[in-house]
Design a protein around this nucleic acid. Structure first.
Length: 214
DNA sequence: ATCACGCAATAGTACGGCCC
DNA sequence: GGGCCGTACTATTGCGTGAT
């Protein structure tokens, strides 16, 4: 079980079971789950794991849950990678139709969160390793990403997305630099305005004191 | 008895493809 | 283009099993 939180480093290379580079952690705000991690609500856990998945290149799927025997409320929830498990075989009703792309690859990655007596949701299990390459998708259309990839397309798609990711990183670094310059200018301007205000206040006080003397 | 978890089944839904 | 059908998805539930 891997229980190390990852958010300590602003840039951390994550590796999956096949040892390939997958994605880089670029924001401290996306926390890697760890056993014992607490959430205010079930929804917060979902949002967090979903953000983590988006950041590191997989799609979260809400899996099983359990209700309390006493009050019937949900007290246990499992969140998995969308490639978790294998698709169940169902007989094809039409031979003319093309089968859809395979989306399940037997991935074991998941987190399990449980509601404690305190009302907080705590991660009780975290499986980090995926059995497939992780791809940071540039689109918000999750379903389109899921269904558009056949096994043959995947390597090409991974290369394209990796190249795009590098381009976007360079672009964001340039934007960051520009923002830093703007902030610096704003600070300088702000301190300039402060000095002006101080001068004005000082002048006003001098004028006031002269009036009192007269 | 209760909890934790795995697995299968099912309902509802979204979407792609085919046919008119 | 629009309707229908098939496929695959998520969400939920039931049941079984092992641990506490």
């Amino acid at each position: 079980m891997d229980e190390k939180p990852c958010a300590e480093n602003s840039r951390e290379i994550i590796e999956c079971s096949n040892g390939k580079e997958l994605a880089a952690c670029e924001e401290n705000s996306v926390m890697e789950p760890f056993v014992g991690m607490e959430f205010e609500s079930e929804e917060a856990a979902k949002v967090s794991y979903d953000a983590y998945g988006t950041r590191f290149g997989f799609i979260m799927r809400v899996d099983a849950f359990r209700r309390s025997m006493r009050d019937g409320k949900v007290v246990w929830r499992r969140l998995v990678c969308n490639k978790e498990g294998f698709r169940k075989h169902r007989p094809r009703r039409s031979e003319n139709r093309k089968p859809r792309a395979i989306t399940r690859e037997g991935c074991k990655a998941m987190i399990v969160v449980k509601k404690e007596k305190t009302g907080k949701w705590v991660v009780t299990r975290f499986v980090k390793e995926h059995n497939h390459p992780l791809v940071v998708a540039p689109t918000n259309n999750r379903r389109a990403v899921l269904l558009s990839q056949t096994p043959d397309d995947k390597d090409v798609k991974i290369r394209e997305l990796t190249a795009e990711l590098q381009r976007e990183r360079k672009r964001s670094a340039a934007i960051q630099e520009q923002l830093d310059m703007v902030l610096k200018d704003m600070e300088e301007h702000s301190s300039f305005l402060s000095r002006n205000i101080d001068d004005i206040v000082r002048s006003m006080k001098e004028i006031e004191s002269k009036r009192v003397v007269l």
